[in-house]
Amino acid sequence: MFRFFGFRALRAAITIVMVVTFAFVVLRLSGDPALLIMSVDAPPEAVAAFRTSWGLDEPLWVQYVRYFAAIFEGDLGRSMRDGRPALDLVVERIPATLALTIPALFIKLGLGIPAGITAALHRNSLLDRTVMALAVAGFTVPSFVLGLLLVLLFAVQLGWLPSGGQESWRHAILPVVTLGIGGAAVLARFTRSAMLEVLGQPYIRTASAKGVPWRQVVRGHALPNAAIPTVTIIGFMVGSLIAGAVVVESVFSWPGVGRLLVVAVANRDLAVVQCILLLVAATMVTANMIVDLLYGLLDPRLRNAPRGAGG
């Protein structure tokens, strides 16, 4: 058990360092923050002073070492735009994002999993075909297109719901639905194929041959096995709770982490971008570790210590 976690913690740390390093290099090579933040006609001395004060005149590797040293002291830098700590800026946006992504996660699970199971249990029926056609539509349509379609229908045409902003819970409905539909479609397809795979296994036939009623075969024998691959994709969805709404937040002008990221990237606000990426990587990595743990719970073959097996 200790080795299990030691290994995964190390892998997680390496993942995070790689993400942060990658972001660091790409951001610094892709444009000069000084020129973007100061106006174009700013005097050269002012630009130089800006560079010095943010350490941008140092060689890249010095900046990199400094940056990491600061992270270990809990300092994620300051926004170049308003000088506030980047972490504060990011953290204050998190609730707004979660207000979209958590309800959307429930839609994904509550719609996608039952739809996938039902489709698999009625394979090739009209019901199956309908569910799968909807699922294909649901995940081939990009979320910004779906979002815009929903806005056209429910905000512009019918006038039932607002098209953007964050004033009330009604403003959250369209973005939540947009996020939820895409994810539900992915999950439905995934659950269906996991379920079909399991239903074709010999142990399902064994259960029937034993006299287990079909409902109980599905519940007691098929679902626990189909849950194993499905957990991977659910883990991925949980991991993207913070960063999974970039596009939708932009479409619906929702002031969450995603929009902050878009603005910060456009401005080369390095500390803010890096802070968000660090947070995203950390969530992803945590979700992954939870998935690994769940695997161990769901699938005895993945547990280390054999039980009851003498020799």
Binding site: P202, Y203, A209, G211, V212, W214, N225, D299
Partner: peptide
């Protein structure tokens, strides 16, 4: 009917299969 068959299967006529490794449910003791 399914209910009749469920009583017959395993109760009056049992069946075992070729590949024992995959014929048992991997997640149950």
């Amino acid at each position: 009917t399914p209910a009749t068959l469920d009583r017959v299967r395993g109760g009056r006529v049992a069946m075992i299969f070729q590949d024992p490794a995959s014929s048992l449910n991997p997640v149950h003791r």
